[in-house]
Amino acid sequence: MELLNAKERMLRRAAQEIEVGMIVNLGIGLPTQVTNYLPDGFAVCLHSENGIAGVGYLAANGLADRNLIDAGGAYVTPVKGAAYFDSAVSFAIVRSGRLDLTMLGAFQVSAKGDLANWMIPGFFTPGAGGAIELAQKARKVAVITTHTDKKGCPKIVQDCTLPLTAAACVSRIYTDLAVIDVAPDGLHLIEIAKGVDVDDIINKTGTRLHLPNGEIPTF
């Protein structure tokens, strides 16, 4: 029996992006929730830009350490063998290419893999935090996002209209409706959520999607 809702299925599918042995940074919001779908004992090192390599699960209520948060401000636990370091060392890890993967949220992703996720001029101008360096320097950048925004407008577009976090950085997009790869010739639909119609996905996407030959796998 299928008990997971669309968001949970998206997160569970995105969790498969994480391979044994990787160093991974999960962005604030949906991406950090991916850890809930990693099997117990999975061999991965989660980095948080405020200065941890070896982030574990969220701290249980009442057991939070006042000195131990992740970059999103959530109280976390360290895994056995975790390390703490200052912010310069933390971003040395990022800029020198030690991150195998980062998974980030998005306001817009373009057909070329451009990412806009830090500012909406006139409405949301909080500063970029660590997003620019993560998007520009992780070896692989995957986006986890709802397919459309709250007004139903496509978040996957031909060209981003919002200021870019980084250009041509995204290689894969996970949404509640689909898994999409970014390739030199544009975006390729590679999987669709169970029960979702391909035409519906095409209508909710602001740029052309290349479709696979034959039946499209579901997740």
Partner: peptide
């Protein structure tokens, strides 16, 4: 004045 986080640190 905003700097990316790691650039501010560096």
């Amino acid at each position: 004045e905003f700097s990316p986080q790691g650039i501010l640190a560096e």
